[in-house]
Design a protein around this nucleic acid. Structure first.
Lengths: 230, 230
DNA sequence: CGCGGCTTTGATGTTCATCAAGTAAAGTGG
DNA sequence: CCACTTTACTTGATGAACATCAAAGCCGCG
């Protein structure tokens, strides 16, 4: 975790995502309250139970949000791209994080003191509305994905998650899996062996190619079909 | 759905839950923008896809939030008590509801035009903060529960949901199940036959008694153990 | 090169859904 | 209020889906 010098917030892409209602001078002030941190692959951004003091969002990279389930196993809640908040939901209702977050690719986090965010909501109604919309969008996405996973069988889950990487995360038919087979298993609640087996089956059926961590999708339609039928 | 005359909002319990920041005159105004509706058991409060025009919350009764999964089966997202919003999460990010809501006990819904809620957030920062906290709490609860269910085996899921009814919903060791066996199955993603079988097993093990819809919890500790181990 | 971690595959047994058949309960119409 | 119909519940038997275990291959790294 390396503290870097302040970024020029006025040009930051994130302004369009959640800070579009702030004017130049407000963004300048925001700059004074903010910091940037870099994390390398595997770096822990925060852990379950840590006190929430800052409002964090992902500027670049890829992170996983996870917790320990009742049996002490890691359960992955979501894997998410920039501009979808890292410190989501709990931020306004809890004093401590309920979930851990770690970087699964080289990542940069922007961090703003919670106190300043609260002040903005307090005095800047439009900002509050925008932030609510964004927070609610993120929660919705997590809930939807968790329900989707829960309602599918093994093949359906693997197809679903491959489509998620292909269409949402990488927007490419060829990509490197950012996670191990075991992590995929923890994401979609199945055993590691069966994740591997199912991937092998998909390869044998010519739906994908596998070269280690690299996945190439060959038959998107068939994957879609398995994801929706399973 | 029966339109009733306006309630005296100033004395409404809900003021403490999400409108504590509003003063008397603001609550009076709120009254003008609000309506109450009664639903009998089974009544549909809104359906997936309906346009979101009002901010709704449950004043009394019990509701289930659900959707159709990819296979067209009903998937129950949560069953929830008063003072936990009905029109949760999607409200600030979507134009249409993503989930259906229906009454599973005689219920009363309070409903406020979205436009008025937006105006309040806009001009009343404290209200915005309070609302955010409450919304985030609700989303968190749903996410947590969905993850909990996903990480358990059958017996664990049934124990978990029995504990949910016992401790959270009814706060009593004896209660009438508000839903059918099939609905429990849709809630915890298992087959109806196995819900029944597992309940029977629990009865044989003297952990619960069953008289039709009535459940009596006999051994809370054992249920807790099964819920946490499974 | 050799150790340790991740991956792969096969064999085995458990967990679970599905099917079927029967019983109880709850509506419905006369 | 009773006969009838329908819906919910229950239980057992069966097979499919899935986890677990074990052994072996691979691959990066010291």
């Amino acid at each position: 975790m390396i503290d870097q010098n302040k970024c020029r917030c006025s040009g930051c892409e994130f302004r369009n995502v959640a800070f579009s209602t702030l004017n130049e001078s407000e963004v300048e002030t925001l700059c004074d309250y903010h910091r940037e941190y870099s994390y390398s692959k595997g770096g822990i951004i925060h852990k379950e139970g840590d006190p929430i003091q800052e409002f964090k969002y992902l500027k670049s990279g890829l992170v996983k949000v996870f917790r320990q389930d009742a049996q002490g196993e890691e359960q992955i809640i979501t894997i998410t791209r920039p501009f979808e908040f890292v410190s989501n939901i709990s931020v306004f209702s809890q004093d401590n994080y309920k979930y851990s977050v770690s970087a699964i690719e080289e990542s940069v986090i922007c961090s703003i003191k919670m106190e300043h965010i609260r002040t903005l909501v307090l005095h800047h109604g439009n900002f509050g509305l925008e932030l609510m919309g964004k927070l609610s969008e993120i929660s919705d996405k997590i809930i939807l994905q968790t329900l989707d996973i829960r309602s599918r069988n093994l093949a359906g889950r693997v197809a679903y998650i491959l489509l998620y990487f292909t269409k949402d995360i990488y927007k490419s038919m060829v990509f490197d899996l950012p996670v191990s087979r075991k992590e995929i298993a923890d994401y979609i609640s199945m055993s590691t062996a069966n994740v591997i087996r199912t991937l092998s089956d998909f390869r044998k059926e010519k739906m994908i190619n596998l070269y280690g961590k690299t996945v190439e999708v060959l038959d998107l339609d068939k994957l879609e079909m398995i994801s929706s039928r399973g």
